[in-house]
Amino acid sequence: MRETATPLAAWGATAAVLAGALWMLIDVLWRGAPGLSMGFLLEAPRDAGRAGGVAPILLSTIWILAVALAAALPLGLATAIWLSESTLQRPRLQRAVRLSLDMLAGVPSIVFGLFGNAVFAVALGMGLSILSGGLTLACMALPIIIRTAEEGLRALPPELRLQAAALGLRRSRIVLGLLLPAALPALLAGTLLGIGRALAETAALIFTSGYVDRAPQSWLDSGRALSVHIYDLSMNVPGGEHNAYTAALVLMALIVAINAATQAAARHWRRALSWQDPAAGDR
């Protein structure tokens, strides 16, 4: 009896979950595809977004991502190097840094929004702007970037370090000239993960980068991210659902593309590791 009940329940549950997931994905495709055209990507929104496209919104999204990466990448890479380089290490401080990064990863996105609004927009006087939004997203993406970069650096075969040290290279040369380039695909995968997370974010952006749907002229201008555009069209603009769905389809396509690129980077990384260390290929 039990020998058939478990597989039956497992197949049933999977079928149900599959049906739900496909329902949602096909719904977005079905309702979003009719509005999709070159014009949608190249035109400005008209009539509060009911008509026209998303060109300035894509531009704002790219600006916000660029600010977020410019802030999070150097800080994240340096932190990952500090965490992975054994002789720079101070165990208790390292544990504290790790704990605090884990906590950061668990902070709800709306709390990042509160923080970004209070600090970047108000206290530091940046207002609702690309800069405020980008910096808020940088804080959110930091734990992801650090974790994948650190794992990448640690996964390098130890011989690489030892051989370089035997050649008399300085630690800084080993890290910057050898280890970082060798771990590049892993660093790239981490960066892409961070971008994916930032692209999907809405709640942290409403009160930091704001709602303005014109193309930004500077990074102190407010700019509406694609996700915020979807929210605004579906909740605040009667009759905006069609373009909300089309914008959702564009966002999903971007995220699928980034996921694919992440996986390609990770595959390349595993192959690079197995070339350096044949045993790593089996792992």
Binding site: M24, G196, A200, Y231, S234, A248, L251, I255, N259
Partner: peptide, 10 residues
């Protein structure tokens, strides 16, 4: 990886 705003829209 689907953004929460897309779940909300659906």
């Amino acid at each position: 990886g689907v953004p929460s705003v897309v779940y909300g829209l659906w």
